[in-house]
Design a protein around this nucleic acid. Structure first.
Length: 718
DNA sequence: TGGGGTCCT
DNA sequence: AGGACCC
């Protein structure tokens, strides 16, 4: 591809050590390296033009627009989408009334009492819509090897270099349709010749152009394949993509077009909403001048809080200024950053790799590729925040709720028929629910892109605690996994992250219990129970060096001080194939042997529970089954089948009839013993939720490898 | 002061 | 496992 493109461009070598003058310095170091092989050295000021064509697309106030698709009565209103105490985003009507993005709900309401609040804590709907946009764009550029990268839920990077150059090539070969000074950009390879758009050959860009005088001053006659013409053509393609997103999904977008990601993104936010901007520099000086318009270096993607804080600190040391607080201090401007931080300074502060990168970014150099977002994510996590959650029962209860929602997401996003996410083709109705006046969830099919035609729909309005305010709330309809649906990815690892009242996050991970994949034989409640048990084990395990001796639980985590502020559960390490059974069950199996797991799978749980108690216990022990758990689960399931007719309709009622996870009090061993099995390896009796991890951490804080082949007496520290 | 994600060390 | 970045 590089060679193809190099032929049609005035390709020229640009040594990466050459002074960064003229257009040559627009090139990223990487691109320079690639192209260097093609020709001999050019004058430094007329190097090859940058050759990538990047579109950054930003969905305008995404959560608000998405909410308006569900509830057209929000159109034209000042709307804030809240997550707990914070406004994730707000509508432009709200911004006109003084509401700011990321302000507190309290603050926003003070400024704008008429603000309509929408609950945005459940991301299901936004996630679906976001994926739909991604698929739509990828469907257009994908056939030409175009790459689409999702950044969060509301931004896309699109690399259309191949696509645009292929069109130009076709045009030069006379293969395009032309009519009265216009050319048809055919967007589908061959199958749909009508898919595409017409553009005029005058070389006029669509939308805004920066720098302001750039386009006017370059009216020279240039071949269509110069980088300026290619960028201008790209603005037409950007408009086409934005029109598709608007017509097929009903969302407006802003976009930036430039030759790299960082500039495309910067420029995309210069004109919002529903506008696009092309960055068309004539020289490196143009780039630097543009960047110097930014009063805050943080506007450049890659300069985050920690980096800027460190830079300011370093600056303060030399300019004898107080190393002030992070937020209170004035922003660091791009021009000051560039002047005050030569390459050597940056590499000293941040290491060679990051230092070089930051140095380039300050000059608009960015060689970061558009990394195609894979069909399946690398991790899926859910989290919730609390105000000092403490007490084992309370924590365990939340753990079960979180485990259940994680499983719901895993089923929704990792199961399918093989093509992945079939449930959500463009144009197909999304099945959502909203609450009626009485708080009952009602079906509400959402045909996309018909805003305003739903009549007067009002979501259920719930008061939030201290404010006399209503919050509108929507949720996804539960869909039953079809018979043909199977797991497409298997998370091998589960990670628990928590935050204590004061500090930072800490996390621990362990193997995912394989039971969660048994959607056919186990209800979600059962699987959630298993997962929650594993997570409680993770929570109580404590890190190495903590809670030694008596199997002492690091109880401060649950009981002490401020309690938990945040719980996050992540499924990661997503494998394409179902993993082999873990030896965790057999570890506790009295008879040992790898066959135990298979035998256990063949046990009919309901049949087992019919047996007389003594026999039941014996069989259960042999198969590594925790009886109390199974009894409770099966019992609850039968009960709920009896009176509801088996639909899992009410989320809230789902857990009411479940017994709590047995209390894990190390000071009462009897309690443990009554609901646990004894490890055949070291003899310790473990509560159900501690069994999973026991193989790795037989005694709290003591790794298994240090124990050697412990006897029962050595191992039973509890 | 949210509920997510990615990559690097 | 943690820390940085992104939204």
């Amino acid at each position: 591809m590089t060679t193809k493109r190099s032929r049609s461009l005035s390709s020229a070598a640009a040594d990466s050590n050459a002074p960064q003058n003229g257009i040559a310095s627009l090139l990223s170091p990487k691109a320079q390296g690639k192209r260097r092989v093609t020709t001999s050295s050019p004058p430094p000021h007329v190097g090859a033009p940058p050759n990538r064509l990047i579109i950054a697309i930003d969905l305008d106030s995404f959560y608000v627009s998405a909410s308006r698709l569900l509830d057209p009565s929000l159109i034209g209103q000042p709307v804030g989408v809240k997550q707990k105490g914070l406004l994730a985003t707000c509508s432009y009507e709200a911004r006109a009334l003084g509401v700011r993005k990321l302000s507190t709900v309290r603050d926003a309401l003070r400024r704008c009492p008429a603000l309509i609040l929408v609950d945005g804590e459940d991301l299901t709907w936004y996630r679906r819509l976001s994926a739909k946009v991604w698929r739509l764009v990828r469907g257009v550029v994908g056939p030409w090897d175009g790459k689409v990268e999702k950044l969060g839920l509301d931004e896309l990077f699109v690399d259309v270099t191949e696509m645009v150059d292929a069109h130009i090539r076709g045009r030069e070969e006379g293969k395009t349709r032309e009519d009265a000074g216009r050319v048809f950009f055919q967007v589908a390879p061959d199958s749909e010749p009508e898919a595409g758009f017409w553009y005029d050959t005058l070389g006029k860009p669509i939308g805004h152009v920066l720098p302001l005088d750039s386009h006017a001053s370059s009216s020279e006659d240039t071949p269509s394949s110069t980088y300026r013409s290619r960028l201008i053509l790209t603005t037409h393609l950007a408009l086409h993509l934005r029109n598709l997103i608007h017509s097929q999904i009903g969302l407006t977008t802003s976009a930036g077009i430039a030759h790299n990601k960082v500039l495309a993104k910067l420029v995309s936010s210069r004109h919002k909403p529903a506008k696009q901007t092309l960055f068309l520099p004539r020289s490196a000086e143009d780039v630097v001048r543009f960047l110097d318009d930014e009063a805050d270096v943080r506007a450049i993607m890659g300069f985050g809080g920690a980096i800027v804080s460190k830079m300011r600190e370093s600056l303060g040391a030399t300019s004898s200024e107080a190393a002030a607080n992070d937020d209170a201090s004035p922003p660091l401007s791009v021009s000051l950053a560039r002047k005050a931080f030569p390459l050597a300074h940056l590499t000293t502060l941040f290491g060679p790799r990051l230092g070089i990168r930051l140095h380039g970014l300050l000059r608009g150099l960015d060689d970061e590729e558009v990394a195609p977002t894979p069909l399946y994510p690398l991790q899926i996590s859910i989290e919730d925040t609390y105000r000092g959650l403490k007490g084992q029962e309370v924590v365990a209860e939340q753990m079960r709720l979180l485990a259940a929602s994680l499983l719901r997401r895993l089923e929704g996003e990792l199961m399918g028929s093989g093509a992945g996410m079939l449930s959500s083709e463009p144009g197909k109705a999304e099945q959502m629910e909203k609450q009626d006046d009485r708080g009952k969830w009602q079906r509400h099919d959402m045909p996309l892109f018909l805003p305003g035609e739903q009549g007067n729909i009002t979501g259920k309005e719930a008061p939030i605690s201290d404010q006399k305010v209503i919050v509108r709330c929507y949720r996804e309809r539960e869909s039953d996994p079809s018979e043909s649906s199977t797991w497409q990815r298997y998370p091998l690892t589960v990670r628990l992250s928590i935050r204590h009242g004061w500090g930072k996050r800490t996390s621990r991970s362990t193997a995912m219990p394989l039971d969660i994949f048994d959607v056919r034989t186990l209800s979600r409640r059962e699987r959630a129970e298993r997962l929650a048990g594993v997570l409680m084990g993770l929570l109580l395990r404590g890190g190495p060096g903590q809670g030694q001796g008596q199997g002492q639980i690091s109880g401060e985590a649950l009981l002490g001080g401020e309690g938990l502020n945040l719980i996050n559960i992540a499924a990661l390490n997503l494998a394409t194939r179902r993993p082999a059974a873990q030896p965790l069950r057999t570890f506790f199996d009295a008879g040992g042997g790898g066959a135990a797991r298979q035998k256990r799978d063949s046990v009919d749980m309901e049949t087992l529970l019919q047996l007389p108690e003594d026999i039941r216990r014996e069989v259960a022990a042999q198969y590594g089954i925790v009886l109390e758990e199974q009894e409770a689960v099966v019992g609850a399931e039968q009960e709920s089948r009896l009176d509801t007719g088996c639909e899992e309709d009410e989320d809230d009622a789902l857990w009411d009839d479940l017994p709590p996870i047995p209390a894990m009090d190390p000071s009462s061993p009897a309690n443990i013993a009554s609901s646990s099995l004894v490890c055949s390896h070291c003899g310790v009796a473990e509560a159900p939720w501690l069994q999973h991890d026991h193989a790795r951490w037989p005694i709290y804080g003591v790794p298994a490898v240090l124990l050697g082949s412990a006897t029962a007496s050595e191992g039973s520290g509890a």
